[in-house]
């Protein structure tokens, strides 16, 4: 019962914030500067972390795939398997999870602090719609920046993977990338990127949501941050399954 009420409360609160965001779009001409700023903040800020995470992802993908298939499949096809895994799953999901920790938490902490120190009330009193000013730019920026980060992550992961394939199982770069091309389907790429668009939206939306509704001082901000990270990680995995089934099922 409690769980059901909580669920309904969240559905209501999410819809309300979404509605306010759509309403804020009416003042879209005030947004571009803030969006660009947010993209720079989210995108450039996460780049080093995402790059490091992707190198390792790519490396692990090679070793793991080689280990799993070497008895049945010639390693000439290693690139194909690894590339599919990276484009369909690893790139979008791992980038999203890394960014959920960094960006989702950052947004929740920032907006939460603004809420409990009455900066959001101050915006209200200046007749500046806080959803338009704080939430919209971040969510739009996230929805743009995270797919871009994902593309970069996938390129980096493929390179890492190619290097390890050469060093560990002696598959040359040419063979590796020939394998990548051989079984490539456009769907692998755009399906993964479509997922990352949704992930970008989810992470920034949930970060804003929990930050915006923080209450009760520093403790409340901490709670909001934790909730944002947990909720966005779960949402990413859940939507990964749903979208994966729809696109590839």
């Amino acid at each position: 019962m409690q769980g059901l009420l909580n669920f309904l409360y969240h559905v209501g609160a999410f819809s309300r914030l979404l509605f306010y965001m759509l309403r804020g779009l009416r003042e879209i001409r005030k947004l571009p500067g803030l969006i660009v700023q947010s993209i720079a903040h989210i995108g450039l800020g996460s780049l080093p972390l995402v790059a490091v995470a992707s190198v390792f992802t790519g490396m692990v993908a090679s070793v793991q795939t080689a280990y799993q298939v070497r008895d049945y499949v010639p390693l000439d096809f290693l690139g194909a398997g690894v590339a599919k895994a990276i484009m369909v799953e690893l790139g979008p999901v791992l980038t999203a999870l890394v960014v959920a920790g960094r960006v989702g938490a950052g947004i929740a902490a920032e907006l939460g602090t603004m809420r409990v120190t009455e900066q959001i009330d101050a915006l209200e009193l200046m007749a500046i719609d806080p959803v338009r000013f704080l939430v919209l730019p971040r969510v739009i920026a996230g929805t743009i920046a995270i797919p871009l980060l994902t593309v970069i992550a996938e390129v980096v992961a493929l390179i890492g993977s190619a290097v390890i394939s050469y060093l560990v199982v002696q598959v040359s770069f040419a063979t590796f990338f020939h394998g990548v091309q051989l079984f490539f389907l456009p769907k692998d790429l755009w399906g993964g990127l479509l997922k990352s668009v949704v992930f970008g939206f989810l992470i920034t939306f949930l970060g804003c949501f929990y930050g915006f509704h923080a209450e009760g001082g520093a403790v409340g901000v901490g709670r909001a941050t934790t909730r944002a990270v947990v909720a966005s990680a779960l949402a990413v995995l859940m939507f990964d399954y749903i979208l994966g089934s729809l696109i590839y099922g």
């Binding site: 920032e110 602090t113 120190t117 009455e118 900066q119 101050a122 209200e124 200046m126 007749a127």
Partner: peptide, 20 residues
């Protein structure tokens, strides 16, 4: 309400300045 608020100035007890 936003229109009306343009006539208001509000000094918050804890200042509520935008720290960014």
């Amino acid at each position: 309400l936003y229109e009306l608020r343009r006539r208001f100035g509000f000094v918050f007890q804890a200042a509520a300045l935008f720290d960014s």
